[in-house]
Nucleic acid binder design. Structure first.
Length: 537
RNA sequence: GGGCCUGUAGCUUAGUCAGGUAGAGCGACGGGCUUUUAACCCGUCGGCCGCGGGUUCGAAUCCCGUCAGGCCCGCCA
């Protein structure tokens, strides 16, 4: 097959290397996980799925870099964390809600990792978790550590020539920890398998056993060491690692040194928040996956990553971009799964076929479960539902409205997915994320200046309409609607003009959602007062 | 300084690896539906494919150069 989704294309390349594959993703749990981290995971997971589709024997692993030290006291941490800087993330306490270390809350790394794993479960990602700290203590790295400690000069040369970075004379390719668990300020003074000997800045000395993970390899070696003992054949990484002179280019050399063919490289671009730059937990520019999962169905979040090739920069926000994304997902579903266009492929040009297959691939990789059918809740467009949800406070009424307009067959039995979709939309509408221009905002008072362009007796129309409204026994959309139409007809007025006027009075805009249904959801007395306050003098 | 990625319609982009008439969606505009839409359906407009050269019968696609934006060469995905 020539025409494929980006994940399929990578899987195909992997298939030339062999049948057994380990696709890896790795993240340091130094703070809150965000959508950017999700790209790492989903990119890997989609390649993994593509491999399975090709009949390869593939495994997907998520390496949690819990052996990394705390770099500094981040803005969300209390200064009390100062004493843990340089200590491994798996060994320091999680922060409480004030950012202070809480010795009862488990480890720092688990604290940030667990909610992320929960979110992954929601989007159907089930990786094998590899805890880096634990792997060191179990001796998984000892082979690599031995090789590294016996080739210090070679390693220095490789790093210095490839990265152009100059290493100090006492640099050593293993970072030991002192008796308190701190990595900073130690200088290695000797090596004799399986021990490294060190001294600290005030003259204390000690030794660490390389087999027990007392310390860790520096990043540029830690990464390829993982490749070799896990057997990684493909790993997506952020573009920072992908650049020449970056950790992939030194990593591939070290990988060979460890006797492992370097994994197939795949650099991906950052996700940024529109108008705010790249996502980063330290700068506070961040949107968490769980946050987004509260607003839209899980498929949409997968679609965000599935639809763009890894090299493409993604701009994201929880307002209009998210809405367009949901919109696009639904449209693609509809065009490919309802119209059965696949059957008539013969007549298409190559480009049209490519377009089609990529779109289909994106939708397929957006499904929560591998090989599951596309969930039919896409048939109720997000945009439409967000409007209905705003004017109908009761869920049942929403489903009746959907039935009436033909989006669903029966209001009595909405699918579980649809109920969930509605509840997420309600959550979105009530949050600060919801786009302003889609909000239905009822005027507090009327700006009479904008009513001057009507060439019919507005004041008289309003009086007549309000009398009809007052006479209504039940404030229900059908009756409200006929009041408006009848008043217009009795006065021989143009109906669209009348609606324009009413939209201006109530919403301040010339159009809006179905007016009668909107009014039905609002307080009758307030509306009458508002309408009566309008004049065009 | 060295290197990587990106640049296609007003916006978001597909197509670049494997050269063969530039395709979508959104928006805009027009029409249909007319108990009123932001739904739905139909249609229209809109592109020196960043720029300059080269290879080729033929280049968005390959090669060289150049400009712009982002990033890396210090453990931020």
């Amino acid at each position: 097959m020539i025409i494929i989704h980006w994940a399929d294309s990578i899987a195909q390349k992997l298939s030339y290397r062999g049948k057994k594959h380990v696709i890896a993703a790795g993240i340091t749990p130094s703070g809150e996980f965000h959508i950017g981290h999700l790209r790492e995971i989903l990119t890997g997971e989609m390649i993994h799925r593509a491999c399975l589709k090709l009949g390869l024997d593939s495994e997907f692993v998520f390496v949690v870099d819990s052996a990394d030290p705390l770099r500094k006291v981040y803005s969300f941490l209390d200064p009390e964390y100062e004493k843990y800087v340089g200590h491994q993330l798996a060994m320091i306490p999680a922060p409480d809600k004030y950012g202070k270390p809480d010795s009862t809350a488990g480890s720092y790394s688990d604290y940030f990792l667990n909610p992320f794993l929960e979110a992954l479960k929601n989007i159907g990602v089930k990786p094998k978790i590899i805890d880096n700290y634990q792997s060191y203590s179990e001796g998984k790295f000892s082979e690599a550590c031995k090789i590294v400690c016996e080739h210090v000069e070679d390693i220095k040369t490789i790093i210095e020539t490839i990265s152009g970075r100059e290493l100090s004379a006492d640099w050593f390719p293993y970072n030991p920890i002192d008796e308190n668990g701190c990595m900073d300020g130690l200088v290695v003074t000797g090596y004799n398998w399986p021990f490294v000997y060190w001294k600290d800045s005030i003259g204390n000395s000690g030794k660490n056993n390389l087999k027990n993970g007392e310390g860790k390899l520096p990043w540029r070696l830690d990464w390829p060491a993982k490749w070799s003992w896990i057997g990684v054949t493909c790993e997506p990484f952020g573009k920072d690692h992908g650049t020449s002179g970056g950790s992939y280019s030194t990593g591939r050399k070290f990988s060979e040194m460890f006797g492992h063919e370097p994994p197939f490289p795949l650099a991906y671009e950052w996700i940024s928040i529109k108008g705010q730059g790249a996502m980063s937990s330290s700068s506070g520019v961040t949107i968490g996956p769980m946050e987004v999962l509260e607003l839209v169905p899980s498929e949409i979040l997968r679609y965000l990553v599935a639809r763009s090739k890894p090299a493409k920069h993604i701009e994201f926000n929880t307002g209009d971009i998210l809405l367009n994304l949901a919109d696009e997902y639904e449209r693609v579903c509809a065009s490919f799964y309802e119209k059965n266009l696949l059957e008539s492929e013969e007549n298409l040009t190559k480009r049209q076929k490519v377009l089609r297959h990529e779109a289909i691939g994106s939708v397929e990789y957006s499904q929560i479960n591998l090989d599951s059918e596309i969930d039919p809740s896409y048939k109720v467009p997000f945009r439409h539902l967000s409007m209905i949800a705003q004017i109908r406070s009761n869920d049942e009424d929403v489903f009746f409205a959907l039935e009436k307009s033909g989006y669903i067959k029966s209001a009595k039995s909405p699918s579980k997915k649809l109920i969930e979709k509605l509840s997420k939309i309600r959550c979105w509408i009530n949050s600060s994320h919801f786009p302003e221009n889609l909000k239905i905002q009822i005027n507090e008072r009327v700006d009479n200046k904008i009513l001057v362009n009507f060439n019919f007796p507005i004041n008289e129309f309003i009086q007549n309409l309000v009398i009809k409204f007052k006479n209504l026994d039940t404030w229900e959309s059908d009756y409200i609607g006929s009041c408006i139409i009848n008043t217009a007809k009795e006065m021989d007025l143009n109906v669209p003009d009348v609606f324009r006027l009413l939209y201006l009075i109530i919403l301040g805009k010339v159009s809006g959602p179905k007016l009668a249904r909107l009014l039905q959801e609002l307080d009758k007395d307030k509306i009458l007062t508002l309408i009566l306050s309008a004049k065009n003098n």
